[in-house]
Computed example of a mutant assay.
Amino acid sequence: MLAAQPKTVGKRAETGCGRANFAFQRSARPLQRPFTQIVRQPLTVSHAAERDISAPRLIQHKNEAYWFYAGLSQVYDHIVNPGHWTEDMREDALLPAKLNDPKLKVVDVGGGTGFTTLGIVKTIPPENVTLIDQSPHQLAKAKAKPALKGVTILEGDAEDLPFPADSFDRYVSAGSIEYWPEPQRGIREAYRVVKEGGVACVIGPVHPTFWLSRFFADVWMLFPKEEEYMEWFTKAGFTDVKITRIGPQWYRGVRRHGLIMGCSVTGVKPKSGDSPLQLGPKAEASGRLNSNPLSFLLRLLLGTAAGFYYFVLPIYMYVKNLVWPKSWPM
C-alpha cells in the first residue's frame, strides 16, 4: 500500500524547456486501487538527453511493430491486457483526460484492438470517437466489437496524423508510444490535432531500474523515463503537464521492474494552431522496410523473445503478491 503522502519525484531546475508541473495527486478512487498517484512537485526537465532515445531497440520501429502485432493481435485482449492493462487501470488512466462531456470529439491514436476505446465510449458517444492504428490486424479486432459500432476506425501513422490542426477536443494514446521511432514527433502531432484548451493524454511504459528488467526493456522497445515524457510534452507546447502513475494492483506500487502501462501523461493546449516545435522529415514511414529482410527477421524474432520477459514478469509479481507478507516490501 502506498504511503499517505505522495512520493516526490525529481527536483526544481531551470532549462530552456521552461517550467512544467510534475505532481502526484491522489486519485479520487477508493483505497482498493493503491497504485494511482498524480505528480504535483514542480519540475523543469533536462534529463532526457542523458540517454539516446534513438538507440536501436528491437521492436521500436514501425515495420517490426506491424508484424509483431500481426501475431499478437490474435491473443492481445486475452493474454496481454490481464497482466498489464486491466479495466481498473484503464479507468484510472483515462480519468485525467477529462472525458466528462458527451459533446467532446476524441481521437484514440494507436488504439489497436479498441480496448482503450471501450473505456472512452463509456462517456463519449461512439460517433464522436475516432480510432486510428497502423495495424490492420489490430483494427480488425476493434471493428468486430459491438460496443465500438459507430466509432470511426482508420489505418494511419501516429507520427503523421491525417487530420487538420484543431480537430479534436481530446487526444488519447495508450500503449503506442513505445513503438514510435520519434516519440517527440508523435507528441507534437498530439498538440497539433487538439483544439485550444483541449487535453492530450498519453498512456505508456515507465523505465525500470532493476538491472535485469532494464536490460530486457532497453533491448525490446522504448520504456521512457517520467522526465522524458515531461520534456516531450513541454517542448511540444503543452502546459499544465501532469503524470498519473498507474499499475496492476498486485504490484503493490512496485515500479523498479518497469511497467508496460505505468503512467498516464496529460497536457493542455494553450492556443490554437500548430505546435511551436519544428522538426525535420520523419525518420521512418509505415509500410516501408528500413533494413534488409534478414536483419528485419532477426530483429523481430529477438525482440519477441526479449518481450517474453514482460509476459512472465506480471505472473511472477502476481504469485509474489499472494505469498509475500503484506507488511514486507515487494
Rank of each mutant, 00 (worst) to 15 (best):
G18Q: 12
G18M: 15
R19A: 15
N21P: 04
N21K: 15
R26L: 13
S27R: 13
R29M: 13
R29G: 13
P30Y: 11
L31K: 05
Q32N: 13
Q32S: 14
R33W: 14
P34D: 14
F35C: 14
F35K: 14
F35Q: 11
T36N: 14
I38V: 14
V39M: 08
R40C: 12
P42Q: 10
S46K: 12
H47A: 14
A48C: 03
A49R: 11
A49P: 00
E50H: 10
E50Y: 04
R51P: 01
R51N: 00
I53W: 03
I53H: 04
S54N: 09
S54M: 02
A55N: 07
R57G: 01
L58Y: 03
H61F: 09
E64I: 04
E64Q: 11
A65E: 15
W67I: 08
W67D: 12
L72S: 02
L72W: 08
Q74T: 10
Q74R: 08
V75Y: 06
V75E: 11
I79Y: 04
I79Q: 09
I79S: 06
V80W: 06
N81Q: 06
G83D: 05
D88P: 01
D88F: 09
D88G: 13
D88H: 06
D88S: 14
M89T: 06
R90P: 00
E91M: 00
D92R: 09
A93S: 07
A93V: 02
A97C: 06
K98R: 09
L99P: 12
L99A: 03
P102N: 07
P102E: 06
K103T: 10
L104D: 06
L104Q: 11
K105H: 05
D108H: 05
D108L: 06
D108E: 08
V109T: 07
V109K: 01
G110M: 06
G110T: 11
G112P: 04
G112A: 03
T113E: 09
T113V: 07
T116A: 10
K122A: 05
T123H: 08
I124S: 03
P126H: 00
P126R: 00
N128Q: 11
N128S: 10
N128M: 02
V129K: 03
L131W: 12
P136E: 03
H137M: 08
H137V: 01
Q138I: 00
Q138P: 00
Q138C: 01
